[in-house]
Amino acid sequence: MSIKIDEPLLESVVEPDSPDTAGKTSGANTATEPKQGALRSPALWLTVAPLVVVIGWALFPSLFSGFDPITGVPAHKLQEPSAQHWFGTDHLGRDVFARVVHGTSQTLLTAGLAVLIGLIAGTGLGLLAATAGRAADAVTMRLIDVLLAVPGFLISLIIVTAFEPGPVSLGIGVGIASIASFARVVRSEVLRVRSLDYVEAAFMNGGTYWSVVFKHILPNSCGPVLALLAVDLGVAILAISGLGFLGFGSPPPTPEWGLLIAEGRQYLASAWWLTTLPGAVIVAVVILLAGLGRHLHKIFKF
């Protein structure tokens, strides 16, 4: 699905509006305790372990499936899930599980590129807004408004149309849409950190603008950003699948996840597994990434 959840799952986005947070944040020094607690939480490891498997799929797909993801056996087409073909086979007799496993790397690369674009451009803008003075803030905030006002979705379509659909164009198209959310999170985080006593102290002790930004502000603002990173990865995967649904996906035989559910839907009535099982994988991964985001947020909470 291609809906962009701007500022997903994160309270920090909106909190700076209420002065209450300022009071809470003064407890920064006691952060170590909940941090270790969060790291020991079994829930965290239950979230991380499956994601590690998914990374394994991306790096060493052949270890997880012996079938060829792009060359099928036509005679074995549209078989139901079985011990041999866990996720069944598709209309050309290709093993669907193999396609999911082998599609992981392209999926993560495309979504990863999208998130990276959002992260870099968003961090830049957010930092600029929060530290470079009132005028810069006003200008940057209007820019962010513009990015939100132009439907990111339309921009994605234009970019994918302008350049042929592939990891790069899809990544850029989806990434542009996530710049605004990163910028807003970074901005509010930096403003929060900026107001902490020790940052004020660092400035007073003669630290230059950049040294304070890089030594103190950025490292201390990265928690929510990391959390947003995890969540946004899931959002990007869904956005790419939504583009695939509308016919703006990578060309076959690429076994990209979003494309698998988008194309498998044609057989919804006759071969349910084609769209349902890869769909379940996406849903699971997106939920796990969202969970990871929450855990990261707890760990880095100051």
Partner: peptide, 13 residues
């Protein structure tokens, strides 16, 4: 989080 993770087109179909 579950609501957010289900592709809209898939749910609709």
């Amino acid at each position: 989080p579950l609501f957010a993770a289900v592709p809209v087109f898939w749910l609709g179909l």
